[in-house]
């Protein structure tokens, strides 16, 4: 356990220090969401209808943007070699890295959600619903995105290719995340059904993500 908590603490520390990218993700999220009304127009009724979708898209893009370097930095400086060799199973190390990433880059997105809800004319209930679905759904985004980050190391290609690989994987999360928040705002479905599917997706990705990422890293060794 010391090994994993050391890894989590190190990654969070790096993300928050000078040069780390955790807070840039939040800024990106803010900017994307602020841009949306310029595209759809300042009609408040329309904005509050689109609000959950806009917030979810923003969070999806922001978490994808910051995931890019999850393994790449460790690969470039040789840390990944030592992590692979260590007595900690690679799957657990991957999970620890993803957890650290979610704590440093995912949680701030959820904290920023109420402010953005205000800008998109969402009421308290709607904002709460979106924040709750993001809380349940962003781990899934991180843990599926992690697979793409591992592939990026294997293929020596980051950035856009990773986005193309990962975005389709996150479609189910997006569907049920937005569906749950819409259900809470306008109905007619109950909030519970899509929300529990969302939680289930998160749990499944919590298991699959580390294994897939570790497998991809092992095969990409060179």
């Amino acid at each position: 356990m010391t090994a994993l908590s050391a890894l989590v603490r190190r990654d969070i520390r790096i993300a928050l220090r000078v040069g780390g990218g955790a807070l840039i993700g939040v800024l990106f999220f803010l900017t994307v969401v602020v841009l949306m009304p310029f595209a759809v127009g300042p009609d408040l009724a329309l904005l509050s209808r689109l609000g959950p979708a806009i917030l979810w898209l923003g969070a999806l893009l922001a978490s994808l943007l910051t995931l890019d370097r999850l393994f790449m930095a460790d690969h470039d400086d040789g840390s990944l070699d030592l992590i692979t060799m260590s007595r900690t199973p690679l799957e657990l190390a991957c999970a620890a890295k993803a957890l650290a990433h979610w704590l440093a880059a995912g949680l701030p997105l959820i904290v920023a959600t109420p402010v953005l809800g205000l800008l998109l004319n969402l009421d308290m209930v709607a904002t709460g619903a979106v924040a709750l679905t993001l809380l349940a759904g962003t781990p899934a985004l991180t843990f599926t995105g992690m697979i793409g980050a591992a592939l990026a190391v294997t293929l020596h290609r980051g950035g856009l290719l990773m986005a193309v690989l990962v975005l389709p994987l996150s479609i189910p999360v997006l569907i049920f995340g937005v569906a749950a928040s819409q259900a809470a705002i306008v109905g007619p479905m109950t909030f519970g059904a899509p929300f529990s599917i969302l939680c289930a997706l998160s749990l499944v990705s919590l298991v699959i993500g580390p294994f897939a990422a570790a497998a991809s890293l092992r095969h990409g060794l060179d």
Partner: peptide, 10 residues
């Protein structure tokens, strides 16, 4: 190895 496995921020 050739690479130091060091983080400049730490």
């Amino acid at each position: 190895g050739h690479r130091d496995a060091l983080k400049p921020a730490l």
